[in-house]
Amino acid sequence: MSDTSLTIRRFSDLANPSRFLALSARLLPWLCCLTALLFAVGLFFAVTSAGDYQQGETVRIMYVHVPSAWLAMMIYGVMSVSALGTLVWRHPLADVAARAAMPIGAAFTGLALVTGSLWGKPMWGAWWVWDARLTSFFILFLMYAGLIALNRALEDPARAARLSAILILLGFVNIPIIKFSVDWWNTLHQPASVLRLGGSAIDAEFLRPLLLMAAAFTCLFFCLHLAAMRNEILRRRVAVLRRQSARSAALNGPAA
């Protein structure tokens, strides 16, 4: 009982944007250092590890492709939690978090698509195949783009927050259905399976850099997200101050 109320207090402590700014200012340098360290180690292993006997050097694309694909999905999860926070708890930072995550998510989805395509050309002989996984990622990218477009079109931040939260959740419920239907469609049209790495039976030689790079990308996202949230809070402050100054100027008359 007291434990939960303490957590709730912690959580609502974070709801004060000023306190969030102070806290994130202290956290951010450490997180950036951790990210740089993880990237250094991860890239070292990614470059020095042995190539696959079958895929050769192209297996190294996996070390940037898989982490960005993982991030693309995780960021949508973060946005969905934030959307719940906006709609259910009306947490004032939740919509800041959702809005700051959108461009980052779109960028990593795009990166996953580009690197996947660069991997597919030597492996499958085509830049793009209508494989179930690629197609679902393409749809995910479209959903990110739609959300960004909606956010750019709406001017009032409070209204934009509520509406995009609804849309994020609508998309979140639909993602499994889209995934399932694309799988169905793929087996209908493409009975031949494409070359793919054999499930979870990945050798430790590949797993080590993959996990390190995944950790590095995840830390990178949290750094970027924190910084983008800070920027978003400052942007809203500027907007409020501008409105205040305009109002006081209007009240004091043109002479003021």
Partner: peptide
């Protein structure tokens, strides 16, 4: 890393794309 491998261009291009995206976001 073997720079004489057949598909090294694709590997470098994908790392380059990652670099561009990451630095673009940071910037």
């Amino acid at each position: 890393m073997n720079f004489a491998a057949p598909h090294i261009g694709f590997v470098l291009a994908s790392y380059g794309a990652a670099l561009v995206v990451v630095f673009g976001l940071i910037l």
